[in-house]
């Protein structure tokens, strides 16, 4: 999610029971950056309305493989969230429901060595719950969370007393590491933005 972080951001990733360790030396070969646009911030009832993914293979974001999938929410009263995401209700109304699009998303996740999300706790829990309710196996991907990478940068920079503190939001963090502005609230654009931020943070932590 690229939106303002909710107060409940302290959710434990343990619930997902994923492998969340990034190898210390060498980076995963194939990482899938993912962004969800949802109707709210509560993982228990937020509905997915758009899924954006883009693979990062050997440090290169594959723009040709960007996927943007619209999803029709089960509850029709999700229009508030839709407006915030620049999606027209009519667009979403003709989109396939989540159970239809989820299998291919889960396969794409399974094909990757790690799943990359900005503020993973919300999006990963929403996806995990969706898999459970539609009766599909959760591929248990290793999780890379750019918010967590930001925290590691902040800790390191606090230790060395260098620089300003990196903001935790996607747009703020990107600006702070010198990345160009992006079209926020578009799942595909946010996924690309997350992938680029990941590459920048990765280089910063390696340095």
């Amino acid at each position: 999610m690229s939106t303002r972080l909710p107060r409940s951001s302290g959710l434990s990733l343990g619930l997902v029971r994923g492998r969340r360790i990034m190898r210390r030396r060498g980076h995963p070969h194939r990482v899938l950056a993912l962004d969800l646009e949802t109707t709210g911030y509560d993982p228990e009832d937020a509905e997915v309305i758009a899924i954006g993914t883009v693979p990062v293979v050997d440090g290169a974001v594959r723009i040709g493989e960007v996927r943007r999938t619209l999803v029709r929410p089960a509850v029709a009263s999700a229009e508030l969230g839709i407006a915030a995401h620049h999606l027209r209700p009519s667009e979403v109304a003709v989109a396939p429901p989540l159970e239809e699009v989820l299998p291919s998303v889960l396969t794409t996740i399974a094909d990757a060595d790690a799943l990359l999300v900005h503020h993973a706790s919300l999006d990963v829990r929403v996806l995990h719950r969706a898999a459970r309710t539609t009766g599909q196996p959760w591929p248990r991907p290793a999780i890379i969370d750019t918010v967590e990478l930001i925290t590691r940068c902040r800790n390191r920079e606090r230790a060395t007393g260098s620089g300003r503190r990196l903001p935790r939001d996607l747009a703020g963090a990107r600006a702070a590491v010198g990345l160009p502005p992006h079209q926020a609230h578009d799942a595909a654009a946010d996924a690309i933005a997350t992938a680029e931020l990941y590459l920048a943070l990765r280089a910063r932590l390696a340095g």
Binding site: G59, A60, V61, I63, G64, A195, E196, L199, A203
Partner: peptide
């Protein structure tokens, strides 16, 4: 061109 486009980050 877009299908083959990649983004990389060079420190």
């Amino acid at each position: 061109a877009v299908a083959a486009l990649e983004v990389i980050y060079i420190p």
